[in-house]
C-alpha cells in the first residue's frame, strides 16, 4: 500500500513515529507532509480546477507535491489534533484544496449526490489526538471522518482518537486495527 500522511499538528508528535513504524512493519510506502511548515493558500472555490483547468489548481504554492502524492496513493491519512471536534486549521488548509481531486460532476450513490473522484477512490484513515479519548469533540471528529469517507467514496475507512493516557502497546494495537479496517 502507498500512503500519504497529512499532518496538521503544530509540532512533531511522538505518535507519528509509532504510526510510521507500524506502517513500515506492514511494508507500506509512506510519504508524510508536515503542514504547518508548508506555504498553502486557502481554497477560493473559484471552480477553475473543475471547468477551466481541470485537475489543476490555479494557486501555485506547496500543494503541488501533495497533489502528486495523493493522486498516486492508495490510502490518505489525516493526522490532526482535534480542534472544536474536527480538523486543525493546518490540516484543513490542505484538505480544502482536495476539491481539485474531484470531478465537477455528480453521481447518485445510495441516498447521496457525490462528486466522482479524479484519481480513483482512496481509503481514508483519520487519526485525532486529544486530551480525552471520548466526549463530544471525539464524536464530532469521528462523524467528520465518516463524512469525508462518504464524499470521497472511500472503499474503506477508519478513525481513532489518541489521548495521553494511552500506553504505547495500546497505541500500536489501535493502529494495527486501523490498518486492518482499511485493507479488508
Amino acid at each position: 500500500m502507498r500512503a500519504v500522511i497529512l499532518d496538521g499538528h503544530s509540532g512533531k508528535n511522538h505518535l507519528e513515529e509509532i504510526l510510521l513504524e507500524e506502517l513500515h512493519n506492514q511494508n507500506w510506502k509512506v510519504e508524510s507532509f508536515f503542514l504547518p511548515d508548508m506555504q498553502i493558500l486557502p481554497c477560493r472555490s473559484c471552480g477553475s480546477c473543475g471547468t477551466k483547468t481541470p485537475g489543476t489548481c490555479i494557486l501555485k504554492d506547496e500543494m503541488e507535491p501533495i497533489f502528486h502524492a495523493l493522486a498516486n496513493c492508495d490510502v490518505m491519512i489525516f493526522f490532526t489534533p482535534i480542534q472544536f471536534g474536527g480538523y486543525s486549521a493546518s490540516l484543513k488548509k490542505a484538505v480544502d484544496r482536495l476539491m481539485t481531486m474531484g470531478l465537477p460532476l455528480y453521481r447518485v450513490k445510495g441516498d447521496h449526490l457525490l462528486h466522482p473522484t479524479r484519481y480513483g477512490n482512496k481509503r481514508l484513515m483519520g487519526l485525532g489526538t486529544y486530551q480525552h479519548c471520548d466526549g463530544e469533540e471525539v464524536v464530532n471528529f469521528n462523524l467528520l471522518v465518516e463524512r469525508n469517507a462518504l464524499n470521497m467514496i472511500s472503499p474503506a475507512y477508519s478513525h481513532r482518537v489518541f489521548c495521553p493516557k494511552l500506553e504505547t502497546h495500546t497505541i500500536r494495537t489501535m493502529i494495527q486495527e486501523m490498518v486492518e479496517e482499511v485493507t479488508s
Binding site: 473543475g50 477551466k52 481541470p54 460532476l105 455528480y106 447518485v108 479524479r118 484519481y119
Partner: peptide
C-alpha cells in the same frame, strides 16, 4: 445530477475545455 452535470459540461465547453477527466498528477 443530470442537470448539474449538463451545466458543468456547458461551462467547460465555454471555457474551451473538452476533457474534464484529465489526471495531471498521475
Amino acid at each position: 445530477a443530470f442537470y448539474l452535470n449538463h451545466r458543468s459540461k456547458q461551462i467547460a465547453r465555454k471555457n474551451g475545455v473538452h476533457d474534464l477527466w484529465t489526471q495531471p498528477y498521475i
